[in-house]
Design a protein around this nucleic acid. Structure first.
Lengths: 241, 241
DNA sequence: GAGTGGTCTAGACCACATA
DNA sequence: ATGTGGTCTAGACCACTCG
């Protein structure tokens, strides 16, 4: 997992930053780091770029590389880094016990939209998996997912009652590492209100997206309706190229 | 803006992809591209990495580089790329005419939270800027922003009634290129309902965040409450490093 | 002018895919 | 075996900051 040079540097710098080794909020310059770690300056740059994209540090040409003070202050906002894309992981589940209740599980022909999104032919089938997710026995999300049967022909109720991504990673040896996500809000339906214990005036957060395997195959289309108090999607955006 | 080698390659490849020059959805291999563009393979890799992070292409080791079919199908989802972080830009404003109505504009002492987020001392002041944003005269967002006065001492009602980020870019010669964003949903308040023409049962989307200047200075804290039909935040997530 | 990050190159070698 | 992307290096030169 971490036999790559630049990843080792990332891991180590992360540790050093967390240990508050750089009390002045300034990292050594790249040439010194290259010397310290006995690796090329290019590898140092690569590591620093990753950390900068995560929002942990920022670089000023001509001045040096600095630790983002907000990162230390507000570490929980940055939780997203380093986790996988599994839903449970992308939420603030701190300490709470997640569980899953299977609401529905069947195989249906792929609708036209699903054919497009999952790159299927018109006669192909998908699993429809509807699950209620809970934290400490409090329901917080209704999730409806669609997965082409040809990708995982052996799914069953047992598997589907746990983390599908974990199963996929083990059986297909390909992780889910990419997704398109679209985030919005909506008035709650009667079903939402019942399942998520919402009052009629209370809304749901909606996250829908397509999840991809490592090598680019679209794996799942997912529609998630969340209790509005539980939806908090935090992200660091940088428009630099 | 585009005198850098790798950016020129990005621009050109973008054009060629959009022109459907690669009908087989496969790009030439990196060594050929290096030859074609007369630049090093490293520069080609850098360009391809940017495009891959944007979700436009994906690479398979041992096989080649491919165009993401979903990108072409669903270009509007990907609009976020290449724009700046201005709110109006990050929303789907396609064709509609954006405008701004200034609701409130004053200077206040920074609260403790603002002091933390904007990295201020306890006696510093911020502008409080409350604006209603409209599209084709339809209100869709209430935005409350806080900006340290020391960063832009000369703000006035005139400036603030337009795009602040554009003004900053011109006067400070530093663009706003990074942000932390937190996205959630909420029940609408009486004020929301009045300003955004919402029914009592209809919710608002909430986006709050901190915007940074190029060089890392936190520039603005912003709280945005959106008509739920207008909030659609789309993003491409990749957990690879 | 000295220090620091940014860009770019040319080339070596590795890991994976496909036939 | 060949082709493809991934990692890594060593070094040149540029652009910006600051004293």
């Amino acid at each position: 997992m971490a036999d790559l040079v630049y990843q080792q540097v990332i891991t180590d710098l992360n540790k050093r930053i967390m240990a508050n080794e750089f009390a002045d909020k300034k990292l050594p310059d790249e040439r010194s780091l290259s010397e310290q770690y006995q690796v090329s300056r290019s590898s140092i740059k690569r590591a620093l770029n990753v950390l900068a994209n995560q929002g942990l540090i920022f670089k000023k040409r001509g001045s040096g590389t600095f630790i983002n003070p907000l990162y230390l202050k507000n570490q929980s906002s940055f939780k997203y880094e380093g986790t996988n894309l599994g839903i449970t992981d992308s939420l603030n589940t701190e300490g709470a016990q997640p569980s899953i209740q299977l609401l529905d599980f069947q195989v249906i022909p792929a609708s036209q939209e699903l054919q497009q999104d999952l790159f299927l032919a018109s006669d192909e089938f998908v699993y429809e998996i509807k699950r209620l997710r809970l934290l400490d026995n409090q329901p917080f999300m209704i999730e409806t997912g669609y997965i082409p049967i040809k990708l995982v022909p052996e799914l069953n109720r047992e598997i589907v009652s746990k983390s599908i991504f974990t199963y996929v990673q083990e059986s297909l040896k390909s992780a889910v590492t990419k997704s398109f996500l679209s985030i919005s809000a909506d008035v709650s339906t009667a079903e939402d209100q019942k399942l998520l214990a919402l009052k009629p005036t209370e809304p749901v957060g909606v996250m829908s997206g397509i999840f991809f395997l490592d090598e680019g195959t679209p794996f799942e289309v997912s529609n998630m309706r969340l209790h509005y108090k539980y939806m908090k999607y935090t992200t660091f955006v940088s428009t630099e190229q």
